[in-house]
Amino acid sequence: MSLSKYLQELENESIYILREVVAEFFNPVMLYSVGKDSSVMLRLAQKAFYPSKIPFPLLHVDTGYKFKEMYEFRDELVSKIGANLIIHRNEKAIEKGMHPAKFGVAKCCGALKTQALLDALSINKFDAAIGGARRDEEKSRAKERVFSFRDKFGQWNPKAQRPELWNNYNPIINEGESVRVFPLSSWTESDIWNYIKEEKIEIVPLYFAKKRKLVREGKNLIPLESNRQQKKNIEEVSSRFRSLGCMPCTGAVVSDADNIEGIVKEANSAIRSERETRIIDHGSNSMEDKKKEGYF
């Protein structure tokens, strides 16, 4: 069966972008976070270079706080497709017991995600890092380029971005500088789900609804697994995750969608954004500030 026309256009554009990265950079890497966007991006990379294998490694910036199902899914998929996976953790911060409840969300994210990412990029001397961020996710991401320049400290300067015309991307950088590349720039959450459905892409089972034990923290339903000492406010509800991050900072949504058709239906009629369940984004301007420091 052929894809819907708009999904075919998006696929063509993403494949074009992925091939540009390989043509223009010495040492590119693709960020792989195990989530649905990563699953789509990985599938697009397979298609882009078929019949060859994906010509760059995958990088998982692991905070140690991901869901068990995510680690299992990751290891199984990587061995199945024979990809080269690099796992990087900020071991120093993990040893110190970095946790959002102890140090605050901003500090925790800064150490386990941003710093870990910047370290991994510089240790491996990656000059291009492909990420699955979409412009529809968040207001500062709407300003992103497809090839987004980063200085030698990994910083983004949104006020002085290179103009980007047609699909003619500027890949020129000096030593030590890098580029973040966003092949899913033009996709929306609903496009991602429709593509997963039409292309039958495997995703982590956490996206499908089932009865889960959750802890109510204000507006959020946080998985019980993330804090087993918790005794109060425990609810067992049919729920799923719209967006996956670290356990302590990822909220579930009440839902009965236990198959892909159900998820697509929910995504197509969603009235609240998926980032709402991600505690890391809360607080004013938090994504823009994090991005300036080097976050995706």
Binding site: Y6, R135, D136, K139, S140, R141, A142, K143, P158, K159, Q161, P163, S185, S186, T188, S190, D191, N285, E288
Partner: peptide, 27 residues
Amino acid sequence: TDGLKAEREQGITIDVAYRYFSTNIRK
């Protein structure tokens, strides 16, 4: 449409931003 802090502060738009929406007919 004003995505950046500086834009909201100054009430200006700095450069091109991309926005997405769909109807039943088109994206």
